[in-house]
Nucleic acid binder design. Structure first.
Length: 423
RNA sequence: GGGCUUAGACCGAUUCCG
C-alpha cells in the first residue's frame, strides 16, 4: 500500500492525474479494504478536481467518509477551492460551514480560499468581514497570501484606496510582501490608471530585494505595451529572459495583444509563431486575442478564420470567444451569423452573461434592427439574466438612436432602481 | 516532534465619451 501511495503522490506532483487515478482506483477496489491514508484521499480528491471530474472527486470524498476517515483542513481547503472553481459556490460555502460545524478552526489557507470565493462572486463586503475577523483572531497566523488575496479582491472591485492602504498595513504588521503581493499591487496601480506609480513600485520591490517572477514581468510588459511603449515592453522581455524566466503563454498572449493595439498584425503573427516554436501551447485566450485584433482592424473574415482554427485545434470556445465573433459580425452587420453563433453557444449549454447579451444587442442595433435588439434582452431577462450597467447603457443607446429621449430617461431610472451604478 | 497532500498576482469580449 505505501508503495502505491508513494506512486500516487509522485504522479500527482507531476500533474499526471490519470496515472495516479488508475493506481488509486486499483487500491480502493481491493475486496478486503486496505488502509489508505487520509492524505491520499485528499490528494486524489484534488486530482479529480484538477481533471475537471467533479463527480469522481465527490465520490472519493464519500468513499473517504465511508472508511471512517475524518476530513481535515487539507480536505476542506481542497473541497472549497475545487467547488468554487467549478462554479458551485453555494456548495463551497456549505463545505466551509460544515467545517466550522465540526469545530475545526480555519487556518490561513482556508481563510484565503474562502475570501476568494466571496470575492469571485462579487461579495466584497463578506470577504472583507471574514478577513477582518480572522485578522483579529489571535490564533490565526496571517501571511502574505491572505493579505494578497484581499488586496486583489479590493483592487478588482475598484476599491483601490482600500487596497493600497491594506498593502501598507500588511507591511506595518511585519508581514513581508513577496513577489506575488508586489505583483498584485503593481497591477492594481496600473488598473487604477496610476501607471507611473506602478512602475515605481516595481523598482521599489527590487530595491527591497524581492526578485520579480514570471508573473511580475508579464504585468510590466503589459503596462508598457498598453502605453504603446514597445521599447520598454521589449526591454522587460529581455530582462525577464536574463533573469532566467522563460516566457509562457500569458507572455506571448500579452505581446500579441500589444501588437494588435498598435495595428501591427505582422508582428502579432510573428509572436504567434515564436510561441509555437518555443513549445507553448496556445489557449482559448490566445485564439481569442487573435480573433479580437483582426475584428478590431475590420478583418472580420480573418476573425472567423481564427475561430475555426481554434476549433480545429480542439479548443472549446467559451463565452468570451463567442462574444468576440458575435461582436465581429457588426463589421458587416451580419445579424444572421451573430444569431447563429448565439444559438450555438446557448445550445452548447454555455450560459450567456451580460457581456454577450450586450454584444448581440449591439449587432442588431448597428444593423438598425432596434426592436430585435430589445427582444434579445427581453428573452434573456425572462430566463433570469440580471442586466448590469453596460446592458442598460446599450439599451439607452438604442433609445438614443430611435430618438426616444423619454424612454432613454426611464431606462436610466430603472437602472438606478435596480441598484446599478451609472458609470 | 517533523515531513507529505490544499490557498493569492499577470493575457482575450460588450456600450458611451475622449
Amino acid at each position: 500500500v505505501s508503495d502505491a501511495e508513494k506512486k500516487i503522490q509522485g504522479f500527482c506532483k507531476r500533474r499526471q492525474y490519470n496515472e495516479a487515478a488508475s493506481i488509486f482506483e486499483g487500491l480502493v477496489h481491493v475486496k478486503a479494504p486496505l488502509r489508505i491514508k487520509l492524505e491520499i484521499f485528499n490528494t486524489m480528491i484534488n486530482a479529480y478536481g484538477k481533471m475537471g471530474n467533479l463527480v469522481m472527486a465527490k465520490k472519493t470524498f464519500d468513499r473517504m467518509l465511508n472508511r471512517g476517515l475524518k476530513p481535515d483542513l487539507f480536505t476542506y481547503a481542497i473541497l472549497i477551492n475545487m467547488l468554487s472553481k467549478a462554479g458551485e459556490v453555494r456548495e463551497a460555502i456549505d463545505a466551509y460551514e460544515s467545517m466550522r460545524g465540526e469545530g475545526i478552526a480555519a487556518d490561513a489557507v482556508i481563510c484565503s480560499t474562502v475570501i476568494k470565493v466571496y470575492g469571485s462572486v462579487g461579495d466584497v463586503d463578506k470577504a472583507q468581514a471574514i478577513f477582518q475577523e480572522k485578522r483579529q483572531d489571535k490564533n490565526m497566523r496571517m501571511n502574505a497570501v491572505v493579505y494578497g488575496t484581499m488586496i486583489d479582491i479590493l483592487g478588482k472591485a475598484g476599491r483601490y484606496s482600500e487596497a493600497f492602504a491594506l498593502f501598507d498595513e500588511m507591511e506595518e504588521e511585519g508581514i513581508e510582501a513577496d513577489a506575488i503581493a508586489f505583483s498584485t499591487i503593481i497591477d492594481a496601480l496600473y488598473k487604477a490608471g496610476k501607471h507611473d506609480e506602478a512602475v515605481d513600485w516595481y523598482a521599489h520591490m527590487k530595491g527591497k530585494g524581492v526578485a520579480p517572477n514570471l508573473g511580475t514581468y508579464n504585468i510590466l510588459i503589459n503596462i508598457h505595451g498598453m502605453r504603446s511603449d514597445l521599447e520598454k515592453a521589449r526591454a522587460m522581455l529581455a530582462d525577464m529572459q536574463s533573469a532566467n524566466c522563460k516566457p509562457n503563454t500569458v507572455t506571448f498572449n500579452t505581446l500579441i495583444k500589444i501588437y494588435g493595439e498598435v495595428g501591427d498584425i505582422y508582428n502579432a503573427r510573428c509572436v504567434w509563431k515564436d510561441m509555437i516554436a518555443s513549445g507553448c501551447s496556445p489557449t482559448v485566450v490566445s485564439f481569442s486575442t487573435m480573433m479580437n485584433l483582426h475584428s478590431k482592424l475590420g478583418m472580420h473574415e480573418q476573425a472567423l478564420a481564427w475561430f475555426a482554427e481554434m476549433e480545429r485545434a480542439g479548443i472549446l470556445p467559451d463565452v468570451t470567444s463567442y462574444t468576440i465573433v458575435i461582436a465581429s459580425c457588426s463589421n458587416i452587420s451580419d445579424v444572421h451569423l451573430a444569431q447563429k453563433f448565439w444559438d450555438r453557444m446557448t445550445g452548447e449549454g454555455c450560459r450567456p452573461n451580460c457581456i454577450v447579451v450586450a454584444a448581440l444587442m449591439n449587432v442588431y442595433r448597428r444593423a438598425g434592427q432596434h426592436a430585435e435588439a430589445l427582444e434579445v434582452l427581453a428573452r434573456c431577462i425572462e430566463s433570469g439574466l440580471e442586466p448590469d450597467t453596460h446592458v442598460y447603457n446599450t439599451v439607452m443607446s438604442i433609445h438614443k438612436d430611435m430618438l426616444q429621449p423619454e424612454k432613454l430617461l426611464s431606462v436610466f431610472e430603472e437602472l438606478r432602481q435596480r441598484g446599478c451604478r451609472p458609470d
